[in-house]
């Protein structure tokens, strides 16, 4: 029991405290690869701290939806994080929500952030919300199809069961269905976290903004909650990817040692994935908005192929 609580506490701490670090690492690595010095990896923490000490300006045109959206965005991200196995195959909330609840809770956060974007009446907010909802709508079927393939292999949509099934067959990730599904989910990860080639997190240029346009009017603590929530969401999706496809180091036991070992493996895997994302970001140019559906269509076809190739074995 104590170990279960300790594990859940650990998972909560990692989500809250380490998520910004990975955002920082991705930023710094990207700068290095582009032969810039880039910010320190801890810059994201400093930004958050700065925002936490700023006053807020609420647009006169906005209603309570504007103020409510950051809370929903932030809390859904954490709740989802607690449903995904991180260091062991066990996740504190895995009984209370499987992969479907994860995807729909993320959609819940997005729903309110899009409302918040539209609430101010500025055209940028509307632009961001419209684009975000469009892209997520096209990304969703690809994501579901790929995750279904994994779920069908594990005979469950419960994430602990899925991770457990992956652990028990350690070479399963080499099966064609798993590789195709991984590729599909990776493309969706890029789209959902707003990275190049779908969205550029560094831009504030009207023509290319998606996520940034939605949150343009937010300031101070609300902005901090959103930025923090966004980095947690990113870590959550990366965790989902590494732990359902490459469950190395995930132990099915609930001991402190297993959790510690699991944590080391987990950081190594996420770091590796971060490097992979950085490589994709630096070697690609941002796509025109109406090219993005084609990319997501590729992801959907990869997902469908993954499903069909389950017949191979």
């Amino acid at each position: 029991m104590i170990q279960v609580i300790a594990n859940s506490g650990l998972q909560l701490l990692v989500l809250l405290l380490v998520a910004p670090l990975f955002s920082g690492i991705i930023k710094t690595l990207k700068a290095r690869l582009q032969t810039r010095r880039g910010p320190c990896v801890f810059q994201f923490y400093r930004d958050l701290l700065k925002l936490f000490r700023k006053g807020m300006v609420i647009p006169e045109t906005a209603s309570w939806i504007f103020s409510g959206a950051p809370y929903v965005y932030f809390t859904t991200a954490i709740l989802v994080g607690l449903m995904i196995p991180m260091t062991t195959t066990y996740a504190p909330f895995s009984l209370f929500g499987g992969v479907l609840a994860v995807i729909y809770l993320l959609a819940f956060g997005r729903f309110f952030l899009a409302l918040g974007g539209l609430d101010t009446g500025s055209s940028f907010g509307g632009l961001g919300s419209s684009r975000e909802m469009t892209i997520s709508a096209i990304a969703e079927p690809a994501m579901m199809l790929a995750l279904f393939t994994v779920a069908l292999g594990a005979n469950s949509t419960n994430l602990s069961e899925m991770a457990g099934a992956a652990v028990s067959q350690s070479w399963r990730f080499l099966a064609p269905s798993q590789m195709l599904a991984f590729a599909a989910v990776f493309i969706v990860l890029i789209a959902e976290t707003g990275r190049i080639p779908v969205d550029n997190p560094a831009t504030h240029l009207e023509l290319t903004m998606i996520h940034e346009a939605m949150i343009l009017e937010y300031s101070g603590l609300y902005l901090a909650l959103i930025e923090w929530g966004a980095s947690i969401r990113q870590l959550v999706l990366m965790t989902l990817l590494v732990n359902t496809f490459f469950p190395y180091g995930l132990s099915s036991e609930q001991t402190l040692f297993a959790a510690g070992m699991g944590l080391c493996f987990y950081f190594a895997k996420v770091l590796l994935l971060a490097v992979f994302i950085v490589l994709i970001e630096t070697t690609n140019a941002k796509l025109r908005l109406f090219r993005v559906p084609e990319l997501l269509m590729v992801a959907f076809i990869l997902g469908a192929l993954a499903l069909i190739s389950t017949f191979l074995f």
């Binding site: 006053g55 609420i58 647009p59 950051p70 954490i78 009017e217």
Partner: peptide, 30 residues
């Protein structure tokens, strides 16, 4: 779970707003 997680977030923002201010202003709109 959403309710429970909401409480500390609201508390945090309320405390911060008290100390650093929360005011209404015209929308920035770039």
């Amino acid at each position: 779970g959403l309710m429970v997680l909401l409480l500390p977030a609201i508390f945090l923002v309320k405390a911060g707003a008290k100390q650093f201010g929360r005011k209404r202003g015209p929308a920035w709109d770039c």
